[in-house]
Each structure stands twice: as C-alpha cells, then as structure tokens.
C-alpha cells in the first residue's frame, strides 16, 4: 500500500517537474525522425490497426499507451518490420525513417533492424554467456575488426545499459542466470551494441518489480540523450515519468497524440480522459 502511495506521489512529482523542465515542452519540437502515414495492419482477415499517422521526434522518448489489444504493440512492431515474421500479417500505408520508406521493397530489412533496435516485453537473453549475448549483434553485422574492438563494444554497451559494474566479474556466465531486471538491461545492452539510432521498447518493465522498473526508467531517461526511443507501456505513470510525447491508442485507432504533459493534464478526447482517469482499460 505504501509502495503504491509512493508511486502515485512520484508520478505527480514527475509530472510537475516535467512541466517545469524546459525540454519537456521542446521535445515534440525536435526534428522528426520517423513519420508514419495511414498505417494499417491486418492479421489474416482481422484488421488490427486503422490508419495510424504519427510523427516521432528525434532523441526523445515517445510512449504509446492504451488498453490491452489496442494495437500499440502491433504498431511498434511495424516500425522495425517485426510483423514480417508473423505469418499472415499485412502492413499498409507508409513509415519513413529519415525520409526513407522502410517498406520499400529495395530496403534490406536486416539493415533496418540494425538501425532500429528492439527490447521486448519479457527479458529474452540468448542461452549464451553475458559477453556473447552482447557480442552477438556486432558479430553478425561485422562491427568489430578484432577481439579488442569487440571487447570494447561489449563493455561500453554494458556500461551504457548500467549493467557493467554488476556483471564485470562474470561476463562468461550464462545471461539466463541474471535477475529479471538485470536480464532486461542485458537485452538493452544487446540492442545498443549494434549501434542503433532508434530503440523500440515493448513494455520493457511489465515483467519486473518496482525497483528494477525504476532502474530501467532512469536508464531510458539517460539513453534519450543519444537515441530516439519509442516505448509501449501499460502503465500511465510510466509514460508520464519517462516520455516527452504520448500517443493514446484504442481499438486499433490512434485517438490522441501530443506532448506528454498535455495528454495527462489536458486531454482533448473524452476516451483519452476516461483511460487516464481509469474509467476504461
């Protein structure tokens, strides 16, 4: 109960500091990195997304919120074309990254995914050592010329993910032996190691306890300096804490999008308001 109260208090505090923080307002004015226009997704006969259009700013955190099954994860997976791996999924409309259509047939999806990294809902380290988990991406993309290079990439990625100090003495132990929060930071390090420009996070904290969640949220805030981050979350408090821009999805439609502080303090649509007040979802 105390923890919950603390969480609520913290949310309010975060919203307040956000309102006063200069970049909280300026973030949506940053240059547009990703532009989606009229994106639809069909899974077989079932339509999951209806005409989503949204602009995602550079080096800021954009969060997608909405009730379960609203399509926010589906849309996230369109951005790095992960829906390609699902049989029967059809994506329509256009999504551009720096003005380049990512659904262009001539575009190499492998290259795209190296530029747009992804962190998943459940921590999913490979059944390999901690070192190998992080080194895997650089290896398949040929980013390191020699072992020393690779070591450096691994160490700097682990440092950026805030995990290095905890695992530096056991880099050769299996990644699956870490705690849930550590595993998720390992997955973030793994994504960073490839040198992406964008990082997509699909409910990265939903399998974690509040303390591990707080650590990851701090990390996201730091990563914002260098990466364009899109995060899907079930927790409105989390969206309020970490993001500068928020998009509310409902039943496969994008209902409202705007600066996070506006969405949470002054939503335009009634559905958004209802969701934020806990009346739907």
């Amino acid at each position: 109960m105390d923890m919950l109260a603390g969480k609520v208090k913290r949310t309010e505090a975060t919203i307040n500091t956000m309102a006063t923080r200069p970049d909280a307002h300026t973030a949506p004015d940053r240059p547009i990195r990703i532009n989606a226009e009229d994106v639809t997704v069909h899974y077989g006969a079932k339509q999951a997304l209806f005409g989503i259009s949204i602009e995602i700013p550079d080096r800021a955190v954009t969060s997608f919120i909405g009730p379960s099954g609203c399509g926010k994860s589906t849309f996230l997976r369109c951005i790095n074309r992960m829906n390609d791996t699902i049989e029967g999924a059809k994506v329509g409309g256009t999504i551009t990254l720096d003005g380049e259509n990512i659904y262009d047939p001539s575009l190499d999806v492998v290259e795209l995914r190296a530029r747009i990294g992804m962190v998943f809902q459940k921590p999913n380290p490979f059944p390999k050592s901690i070192y190998e988990n992080v080194a895997y991406g650089p290896k398949i993309h040929g980013l390191a010329r020699n072992k020393a290079d690779l070591d450096e990439i691994v160490i700097s990625s682990l440092k950026k993910a805030g995990l290095f100090e905890e695992v530096k003495d056991r880099l050769n132990e299996p990644g699956t032996g870490l705690s849930g929060g550590q595993q998720q930071r390992l997955c973030i390090a793994r994504a960073i190691a490839v040198g992406p420009e964008v990082i997509l996070m699909d409910e990265p904290c939903s399998a974690l306890d509040p303390i591990a969640t707080a650590i990851i949220e701090e990390l996201i805030d730091e990563l914002r300096e260098n990466y364009t981050i899109v995060i899907v979350t079930h927790s409105m408090q989390q969206a309020a804490r970490v993001s500068q821009k928020t998009a509310f999805f409902h039943l496969g439609k994008l209902i409202e999008v705007g600066p996070t502080s506006d969405i949470f303090t002054n939503p335009v649509h009634k559905q958004t308001q209802d969701y934020i007040m806990g009346r739907i979802g």
Binding site: R113, A114, M118, V119, N124, F126, V194
Partner: peptide
C-alpha cells in the same frame, strides 16, 4: 524454443539462417 528468443535475434537484425544457426539450434 520460445518465440521471444527468435524475436530477440530478428530484432538485432539477424537473418533467418543466422537466427536458426546461432540461436534456435543451440537452444
């Protein structure tokens, strides 16, 4: 083998055969 492992490899930009050889088969 959990789908999440496959997704993890694809998400890093691994090709299908890399995913199979380096992640699926070892697992």
């Amino acid at each position: 083998v959990p789908r999440t492992l496959r997704d993890g490899a694809y998400g890093l930009g691994a090709t299908k055969s890399e995913t199979i050889r380096n992640v699926l088969l070892p697992a």
